[in-house]
Each structure stands twice: as C-alpha cells, then as structure tokens.
Computed example of a mutant assay.
Amino acid sequence: MPENSSERSSKRVLEPIDRVSEILFGLIMVLTFTGSLSIAEAGRDDVRTMLIGALGCNLAWGIIDGVLYLMGCLAEKGRGLLTFRAVRKTTDPKEAQRRIADALPSVVASVLEPIELESLYQRLKQLPEPPDHVRLRKDDWLGAVGVFLLVFLCTFPVVIPFIFMHNAEPALRVSNAIAIVMLFLTGYAFGRMTGRHPWLVGISMVVLGLILVGLTMALGG
C-alpha cells in the first residue's frame, strides 16, 4: 500500500490536469505584470523592470510550487504508510477492511466484496515490515522539477515580444495575443480531458483567465 501511494505521487506531474493548472497559474502571474505596463508612458527602463519582475515572480513561484509538490508527495506517502501500519496492526478483520476501503478510490471500493477486501488484508499482512519513515524517490524530484519548469517556462512566450520589439505598444498587443492563444489552448485541452466541448471551454478559460488577472491586479497582486 505505501508503494502504490508513492507511485501515485510520482505520477501526478504527468497528469494533464496538473499541467493545465500549472500553466494557467504561470500565465496569470505573468499577465499581472504585462497588464500593469502603461503603454503611453512606458520606456525601455519600464519594460526592463517589468521583464525582471515577471521572470523573477514566476521563478520564485515555480520554486515554491515545486517545494509544495514535494510536500504533497511526502504527505501522500505518509498517509499510505500510516494506513498500512494500521491495517497490519489491527486484529479486527472488519476494521482492516474498512481502512483498506477508505484508502482506495471510492469507485473501486464500492465494487469490492468483503471477501475481496479480506484477501487484500491477508496479502498485506504477508508483506515485510514497512520502513520507519517515508522518503522521496527520484520520480518525486523529477516531478517537482517538472512543476517548476511549467510555471517558469510559460512566462517566456508572453514576454518575448518585449525583448525583440522596441516599441512597447505593439509588443503589448502581440504579448496579449499570445497569452489569449495560450489560455484558449489550455482550456481546449482541459475540455478534451473532462469530456466537455473543447472550444467552449477554451473560450471560457480565456474569460476566466482575464477575470483572475483583473482581480489579482485590483487586489495589488
């Protein structure tokens, strides 16, 4: 049971839903910087300050998200280890079956008969003693790096126009167009993953992203 839990933790970064969430978060953060740029008054120094702020912000949040991902992995592994120990320790078969069912996805647990849960209980009792503490595996560290890269790298498509275009006004327009396309593609992918209309979800994601950016800027983010 602890091993299965760790496998679920290490694979989370590969799940498309997580990728969509991290990209959306990174886009919102960088758009709060590009959206605060005043076209009429912006000079090269203002653009440079905005670029440094946007890159620095997403760099910091990428690191924070990576650390939080590792903490989530440890928490999930720890819950699995505690459940495994509790199942092995109890002498009440019904209590063991309940704990096993609680640790499984609800859909899976709902179709298992008591005799099947009892079989799992007996097999878990035959496993060797679990370790004293949970540890992060290589896949967990790779997952954290993946989270960091998703948050940080999604900054570049939005800020690249300001690097290569000297006029802030057309650069901002191109940047906003890129951000809208990325928001739409993020929503489109989310719609396909959730079985909803991709185009409708894509448009909704653009609207949602712009609303969240506006709220973030209004609240001083």
Rank of each mutant, 00 (worst) to 15 (best):
A168L: 00
R173G: 02
V107R: 12
N4F: 07
L219E: 09
F184N: 05
A218H: 11
K89M: 09
M217G: 02
L55P: 00
I28C: 06
G56K: 10
Q122S: 11
V213M: 12
D102Q: 13
F162A: 07
L215Q: 10
I64H: 14
C57P: 00
E169Q: 14
P170W: 13
L219D: 08
G191T: 08
V201Y: 07
S6G: 12
C73Y: 00
K138H: 13
G72K: 02
V207C: 06
T186D: 09
L68C: 10
G209C: 14
V111W: 08
L59F: 13
R48E: 13
V13S: 07
L150F: 04
K125D: 03
K11L: 11
S36Q: 12
E95D: 10
D132F: 14
L117G: 03
P157S: 11
A96W: 04
E7P: 00
S204D: 08
Q126M: 12
E3A: 09
L68D: 05
P114E: 12
S10C: 03
S21A: 13
A60N: 02
E113I: 02
T90W: 04
P2T: 11
T155A: 03
V159H: 04
E15I: 04
S119Y: 11
R85P: 02
S106N: 07
S119G: 11
G187H: 06
L37C: 11
L112Y: 10
I63N: 01
V134G: 01
A96M: 03
C154M: 06
G43A: 09
A168C: 06
L104A: 09
Q97T: 03
A177H: 05
Y188V: 02
V174D: 05
A179Q: 01
T34R: 07
F184C: 05
W61Q: 01
I163A: 12
M1V: 08
V145P: 00
K138V: 08
I178V: 15
E129Q: 12
E3V: 13
T194K: 11
G220K: 13
S21N: 11
I160H: 02
L208F: 14
I203Q: 08
G221I: 07
I211R: 10
G220T: 07
L117V: 12
E169V: 10
E41W: 02
L14V: 02
A96F: 06
M165P: 07
Y69N: 01
P16Q: 03
L117E: 01
P130W: 04
R173E: 04
L153H: 00
F33I: 10
A218N: 06
